[in-house]
């Protein structure tokens, strides 16, 4: 474990908690893409099946359970409890255009053709594009609430910190996972446009960002 991976995990945890609390406190999921949240729940489900097969550390197990729990709680709040506030008209990204290619790629490019490994690879590829429905929805509505921008900032920051973690691990441990690195680079690049807006609009203090 290194400081970049730890802060990355904490940034990821912060993002997940920020979103969950925002929906819970405001009792509304307006402006939130339910599709992205379903994709994230799928990412955690397919990646953390090893909870059943191997124990890494208390930290590892605890975080995985928290991530899965919060992901499903968020999906529940969006599609059940606060369904009336779900903005389905703007959450129209065709997720099948993500899941099918990602599923196919996971079968073609992986480290090992075993069920657990293919599911892990699927989750890595899916996570890199899972935020697209949310970014698409923001571009359609033309604005995002401040809390949502903080959520996206921490979510983008987490994988950017993981990139540094992988540089660190390659240099000090000789460890690297090309699949995770390539997907992580793609994932972080998708946030670049948002990061620019977050930083520039953040300074001007306007409480809404208007992506191009």
């Amino acid at each position: 474990m290194n400081i970049f991976r730890l802060t990355g995990d904490l940034s990821h945890l912060a993002a997940i908690i920020i979103l969950l609390l925002k929906i819970w406190k405001t009792r509304s999921c307006a402006g939130i893409s339910g599709k992205s949240q379903v994709l994230f729940a799928l990412v955690f489900t397919t990646r953390y099946l090893d909870l059943l097969t191997s124990f890494i550390s208390l930290y590892n197990t605890t975080m995985k359970i928290i991530y899965i729990g919060c992901a499903y709680a968020t999906v529940y709040l969006i599609y059940m409890k606060f369904k009336a506030t779900y903005d389905g008209n703007h959450d129209t990204f065709r997720v099948e255009f993500l899941v099918v290619p990602v599923g196919g790629l996971a079968f073609l490019v992986n480290h090992d053709f075993s069920p657990l490994e293919i599911l892990w690879t699927f989750s890595i590829y899916l996570e890199s594009v899972a935020i697209l429905p949310q970014l698409f929805m923001i571009s359609k509505t033309g604005e995002a609430e401040t809390i949502t921008t903080h959520y996206l900032f921490f979510l983008g920051l987490y994988r950017a910190l993981y990139l540094i973690n992988w540089i660190w691990r390659f240099y000090f441990e000789g460890f690297f996972d090309m699949i995770a690195i390539v997907a992580g680079v793609v994932q972080t690049i998708l946030y670049c446009d948002f990061f620019y807006l977050y930083v520039t609009k953040g300074e001007s203090g306007s409480n809404k960002i208007n992506p191009a």
Binding site: D50, S57, D112, Y162, N165
Partner: peptide
């Protein structure tokens, strides 16, 4: 068979 290294990252 290569020891199946557990994935220690989240």
């Amino acid at each position: 068979l290569e020891e199946d290294k557990p994935k220690d990252e989240l």
